[in-house]
């Protein structure tokens, strides 16, 4: 087991290095140099060159990349923002809690609602209720997030004056964004739960339990749930990523100071240290979550462990 975790950790570091290289490469193709972007076209070429030099932007691509990675590894330093001249990590620490809260809230809401509805749909397959649940979830998944966000603001902020339209001061500010983000990931969880549940219900031991006269409720929520949840739990990691993605556009509409807003602004301004730092941070977070899910899964499902011991993959 320790060997498994150790190897996975090593993989994680390599993957993160890969992410750093990938994003750094893509960003190096973005047009314009930070000096011109910050100072504008009316600035003198000398001032622009001086600023670029200060950022180390006059260096070739690979040197900039290795400098960057070296700083992270040896000094634990994510660099200084081109725009604010402040450490990138400060920006991340200031914004991250909002994004985390929004993501966790959205995931919890969609997990609870969708798993519940998914089970009901499965149990009452092809009933009106089943159709209603599935179709509603699909409709929500078919609405563009920003469109839903605008509609929610129109109704709940402008017309009813019930909820604030922007900000992140307290929990009430998170209600509309949470609804927006969780709506986007609604359908996938519901459908997954439904099909996993359907599969489980048809299995022998459930039939046996039924035959033995256990109540339906007990069978569903105790026996079937437990097994059907396995595939659902493994996708929670991925759906965390999806919620994080959903948060990026949602934050823009609700003016929520989170990582999404930070990154979109930084991409426009070619503030490479900020884009790199926050992307790496999100990637790190995401891989930790995936790792935890995988380790848990390995504990739960012994087949994975056995397979790993045999060398990880099947040879044709």
């Amino acid at each position: 087991m320790y060997k498994y975790i150790g190897k996975r950790l090593l993989y994680m570091v390599l993957v993160l290095l890969g992410v750093a290289f990938l994003v750094f490469t893509i960003l190096s193709f973005t047009p314009g140099d930070p000096g011109t972007i910050i100072l504008g076209i009316t600035a003198s070429p000398e001032d622009i060159a001086a600023l670029n030099k200060e950022f180390g932007y006059d260096q070739p691509f690979l040197i900039r990349f290795f400098d960057y990675i070296g700083n992270i590894i040896f000094h634990f330093d994510l660099g200084i923002s081109y725009q604010s001249r402040q450490p990138v990590i400060d920006d991340i620490i200031a914004r991250f809690p909002n994004t985390l809260l929004l993501t966790v809230l959205s995931m919890s809401v969609s997990a609870v609602v969708e798993i519940f509805l998914g089970v009901i749909s499965a149990v009452r397959q092809y009933s009106v209720l089943d159709h209603f649940c599935v179709i509603t979830a699909l409709v929500f998944a078919s609405v563009p997030g920003f469109w839903l966000a605008l509609m929610l603001i129109m109704v709940f902020s402008l017309k009813l004056r019930m909820l604030p339209s922007f900000g992140a001061d307290d929990l009430i500010h998170f209600i509309l964004p949470t609804v927006t983000v969780s709506a986007g990931s609604a359908a996938s969880l519901l459908r997954l739960t439904r099909s996993a549940m359907l599969e489980t219900i048809r299995q022998e031991y459930i039939k046996t339990a039924k035959a033995k006269g256990a109540s339906e409720k007990r069978i569903i929520w105790k026996h079937a749930m437990k097994n059907a949840m396995l595939p659902v739990v493994t996708t929670l990691g991925t759906s965390f990523g999806a919620s994080l993605g959903g948060a990026i556009i949602t934050e823009t509409v609700f003016a929520m100071p989170g990582m999404g807003l930070l990154i979109t602004t930084a991409i426009r301004q070619k503030d490479i240290p900020v884009v790199m730092g926050s992307t790496l941070f999100l990637a790190f977070l995401f891989s930790v979550i995936i790792l935890i899910v995988d380790i848990l899964y390995a504990f739960i499902d012994p087949r994975i462990m056995a397979k790993y011991k045999n060398g990880g993959g099947r040879r044709g």
């Binding site: 509409v253 609700f254 100071p257 807003l261």
Partner: peptide, 11 residues
């Protein structure tokens, strides 16, 4: 207050 979206601002 920072509000990047025009529509949110006018709301």
């Amino acid at each position: 207050e920072v509000i990047p979206d025009q529509t949110t601002k006018s709301i």
